[in-house]
């Protein structure tokens, strides 16, 4: 099964990358953009989708500072 894990900075933690992108957009004429956050995506194929959650806890994300979301591609 193919899956994607979307990892982003936890709400409330300063995200300077997101802020830099947000500041760049109006310069290109894109107005009204807010709450820009930059994270990363891990794509993987697994036999047992129930393993992904512990993978996130142990390695893929740092739950202290990051939220993650598991998306199963059916």
């Amino acid at each position: 099964m193919k899956a994607r894990v979307l990892i982003r900075p936890k709400a409330g933690i300063l995200d300077p990358q997101g802020e830099a992108v947000q500041r760049a957009l109006p310069a290109l004429g894109f107005e009204g953009v807010a709450n820009v956050h930059v994270g990363r995506m891990v794509e993987l194929t697994v036999e047992d989708a129930s393993q992904i959650e512990p993978m996130c806890q142990k390695l893929l994300a740092n739950p202290l500072v990051e939220d993650y979301e598991i998306v199963l591609d059916t």
């Binding site: 900075p9 300063l14 300077p16």
Partner: peptide, 16 residues
């Protein structure tokens, strides 16, 4: 910090 021997985490410098 990743090994949980110390509390907290290190994040990108605020000046990027």
């Amino acid at each position: 910090c990743e090994a949980k021997l110390l509390p907290g985490a290190l994040l990108p410098n605020s000046n990027l």
